[in-house]
């Protein structure tokens, strides 16, 4: 295995580091001295591996496709926003809106994720080792949010078809979010995703939440209805 290419944000600019990462079609990189820089390793579109040695600011690994981004530290607002595929891992805490609007891939936060984790998620899987803040999975459309700790108020408000798994307590469920039965396929999914995330928990300890589908105003029967003008 070849050694990772070192990129030092104490010397290089953020734009230089991101340009190097975005130009690579593979290989491993180690970013040092991030000092909370914003938008680090965002827009990657190749199977590169990026290890960030320290805390990052807003929007780290945004829009990620194919890449594996590992942050050894905390991350600010908007971690892996609109992630498409690949894996983004943070060993510390993540700020608000982690995994927001994510379409695919895996986002792992070993510590706590803050408010609105997984807001409007569209297919991403998010695994949080600690707690998530209020309004997590707000308007979540698809994908899975797995929380090993507790969830804040209004979990899953106005949720569509995403699945929410919480091991700890839920402060309150948002509008149209209800508890649902945990079936064998859910236990199977949890076991696999927890293993992917490198987090140890018994799938049987989780409760599942999802949409009651009472807020769905669209019905296929209405497709041909004339729109009043």
């Amino acid at each position: 295995m070849t050694a990772a290419t070192a990129l030092d944000l104490a010397g290089a600019t953020l734009r230089e580091v991101n340009s190097t990462l975005q130009a690579a079609d593979g290989g491993s990189f180690r970013v040092v001295n991030p000092q909370g820089a914003h938008a680090l390793a965002c827009g990657l579109d190749a199977p590169v591996s990026v290890h960030v040695d320290g805390p990052v600011g807003y929007y780290c690994a945004g829009m990620n496709q194919h890449a594996t981004v590992h942050v050894d530290g905390n991350a600010g607002t908007g971690l892996a926003e609109n992630v498409m595929s690949g894996t983004v891992t943070v060993t510390g805490n993540a700020g608000q809106s982690a995994g927001a609007t994510g379409h695919g891939g895996l986002v792992v936060v070993h510590g706590n994720a803050s408010a609105r984790c997984g807001i409007s998620m569209k297919g991403v899987d998010i695994v949080v080792g600690g707690d998530v803040g209020h309004m997590s999975a707000f308007m979540a459309q698809a994908g899975n949010l797995v929380v090993l700790g507790d969830a804040g108020a209004d979990l899953g408000d106005s949720i569509y078809e995403a699945r929410l798994f919480v091991r700890g307590s839920v402060a309150s469920l948002g509008a149209d979010c209800v508890e649902k039965e945990v079936r064998p396929e859910h236990l199977e999914f949890l076991a696999a995703r927890l293993a992917d995330a490198g987090l140890d928990a018994d799938p049987a300890d989780f409760r599942r939440y999802g949409s009651a589908r009472r807020l769905y105003n669209f019905h296929p029967d209405d497709v041909d209805a004339e729109v009043a003008r």
């Binding site: 000092q35 909370g36 820089a37 914003h38 805390p55 990052v56 600011g57 807003y58 905390n74 600010g76 510390g92 805490n93 700020g95 608000q96 706590n112 803050s114 408010a115 803040g133 209020h134 804040g152």
Partner: peptide, 21 residues
Amino acid sequence: EYRAIAQLPDVGHATVFEPDP
């Protein structure tokens, strides 16, 4: 933003968190 806090001495050993609403 965290980058302001990143300037402080011994920040590597700080407990970092986002305050609850």
